[in-house]
Amino acid sequence: MLKNKDLLGIKELSAEEINLVLDTAGGFKDVIGRDIKKVPALRGKTAVNLFFEPSTRTRTSFELAAKRLSMDVINFAIPMSSVVKGESLIDTALTVQALGADFIIIRHSSSGVPHLLSTKVKASIINAGDGTDEHPTQALLDAFTIREKKGKIDGLEIAIIGDIAHSRVAKSDIYCLKKLGAKVRLIGPPTLIPEKIQELGVTVFHNMEEGLKDMDVLMMLRIQMERQGKGFFPSTDEYAKNWCLTTGRLSLAKDDAIVMHPGPMNRGIEIVSEIADGPRSVILEQVTNGIAVRMAVMYLLAGVKR
């Protein structure tokens, strides 16, 4: 069982807790594949999506997950809320709680916001991405997908490729995959890989061709267009030339290597369409698995005594 009422990051979870989430998600994956894609497990509970940053996929995925557990879901629309009138973050969370929320799913551009709120409210806080810190449910759905495709995670060679420095997905993935026993390497230009990242037990490659050799899993990251022109890389063309996953480069990995991407993709910049839409890609399965994993997280958090 999970120890805390909140899911703030993978850093705080044990391997045992991660495996419990993945095992439970298996049961929910069966449910969402049926004609009636809904179970009454959390009937009568309420989930509130509190997204201070734009997001369609993650928010929709959480919304569907909550609905398939028979919860009521409110999407708190920030531009129309009192936040623009200057209401403090904590006041907003307390208000959401007073409305009857059992789960507050939060995304915020500042790292640590979910951690702060978790100490102020009784509701379960689920981190849906905080600044450059963590995006735990993305890492859990990635691990679920890898385990489903490869049968295990322990001992696999996994590469995470692209803008590691600004990626909360990469950070959560590293914590998660390391805890489950994978060998993780990071591939990207020096400007996009933090200096002391090796302390997390990963290896670093600044050459795509060398890095991809013999990998079981390739996890591509999205190049955040807002970083362009800030000195991290010269241009998207230049980036694509060195770091885009092409068919030629994919052939350097193992023959049965799978390709992942958290979306949304920049086709032709970090990955070519031929691969994104090809047989080795599990990108759309990641999306489906995301619902099952988020259902498992909410189901398990509901059982934590407080």
């Binding site: 069982m1 049961g27 009454p40 497990a41 189901y299 398990l300 509901a302």
Partner: peptide, 22 residues
């Protein structure tokens, strides 16, 4: 058949039932 998701005592149990496959 796993009945974990259909139980009526999820709120009062000490911990969530382990989910097995249907």
């Amino acid at each position: 058949l796993d009945i974990a998701f259909y139980r009526d005592d999820l709120n009062i149990r000490k911990e969530q039932p382990v989910v097995r496959r249907t």
